[in-house]
Design a protein around this nucleic acid. Structure first.
Lengths: 209, 209
DNA sequence: GATAAAATTAACTAATCAGTTAGTTAATTA
DNA sequence: TAATTAACTAACTGATTAGTTAATTTTATC
């Protein structure tokens, strides 16, 4: 039976971690509970012991991720002296997290691709919260006459769309580079260079001159 | 048996259309061949008569879409007198197509979210081709000293990421607006306003001053 | 009009899926 | 230390899935 001593927290975490990786790689529907159980080296019934069902597991995976990135972005913003700094830090911290946790962009894009049809409610709240952060930055920047008026939602999606897609398409871009050296798909671009380019693009465009 | 006269082309098209809608709405894995057959009001075995298998059907759906958008963008570009015009038209024609065919952004984002792991080969080629278009515009603009140097791949993803996400998240944004009027999620934004904002953002940032 | 080919049908198949059940074992409690 | 609880297991269940088969019907060809 048990190969070693029991540790419930450790078991649960193992399940969550493997679920996160598999949902990220294969998507929710193509990932079976058996997949997750096998990857975690636990009996499938255990997953129902710890989580209500497959979607309950998914919800926990996603809420963990959203909480983490929100904290990352918020905590980074606290050290800023200006709204332009805040925008920069928003972009850098989001980029940093996304590159370090590539399952996050994959999961997020999948959810957003069907308008969150199966989006757990708390995830919806988290996303609105994240957008609020950026929206607030842009609004204050406008009030301070640092930035022009902007469509915050579009800014948001240009930033996170750009970043997320840069993460998720890495293998594709590497493949494309091998096939055609004339096309620069940024296969070796560093995360900071990407974040910097996006930040400079937004700043140069929005700043009042 | 047959409820009316047979028309093979019409039957095939009906299957493709319904497959496109369902794959777009539910994703590949959650859409069953039975779903598609029922939606098309045909016998399931017919799908195997016309297409090799489920993934063969998917490939045909996707290649149709990519050919269509590529043509749309290319044909629009032919009427341009300057590289800046070309960029504008690239963005506007992509936006126009994406808004008129919301299943395309949904399908594309899903594929890109897992780095095209299941991406049909011809779709990979189509995407590279589309990116080449933009990359070429930016390169020429740089050579003509109209635009500064840019990371074409990041520009590409900021543009298509922004546009695609604006399309796919429409219902989410409407929902968010209802819950909190203080947040402007651009729920009623017009496609041309979005395209214009994205174009102006890229132009203002990249143009040499 | 007869035959062949194309389009279509109903029924079938083996495998897989989310979830369940009853039993076992380790850890905790009294 | 015995009883209870928590963590875990193997096996099961009914429904669903992609794909198949053989038969039927319609259309095209001669």
């Amino acid at each position: 039976m048990a190969k070693q001593k029991r540790n419930a927290q450790e078991t649960k975490l193992k399940i969550l971690t493997n679920a996160k990786l598999l949902f990220s790689k294969q998507g929710y529907d193509a990932t079976t509970v058996d997949d997750i159980a096998n990857a975690s080296d636990v009996n499938k019934a255990l997953i129902y012991y710890y989580f209500k069902n497959k979607s309950g597991l998914y919800s926990e995976v996603m809420s963990g991720l959203f909480d983490a990135i929100y904290e990352e972005v918020v905590n980074s913003s606290k050290k800023c002296n200006s709204v332009v700094d805040e925008l920069e830090v928003f972009i850098y911290s989001y980029a940093s997290y996304a590159y370090k946790h590539p399952y996050f962009p994959a999961l997020l894009l999948r959810e957003l691709s069907d308008s969150g049809a199966h989006l757990p409610e708390m995830m919806f709240v988290s996303m609105r919260r994240l957008f609020s952060l950026l929206s607030d930055i842009l609004k204050r920047a406008e009030e301070q006459k640092v930035f022009k008026h902007s469509i915050a939602m579009v800014v948001h999606f240009m930033i996170i769309g750009g970043l997320n897609l840069m993460v998720t398409t890495k293998p594709l871009r590497v493949k494309a580079m091998k096939m055609d050296k004339d096309i620069d798909t940024c296969a070796d671009c560093l995360v900071d260079d990407v974040a910097e380019f996006i930040f400079e693009t937004m700043k140069n465009s929005l700043e009042v001159r």
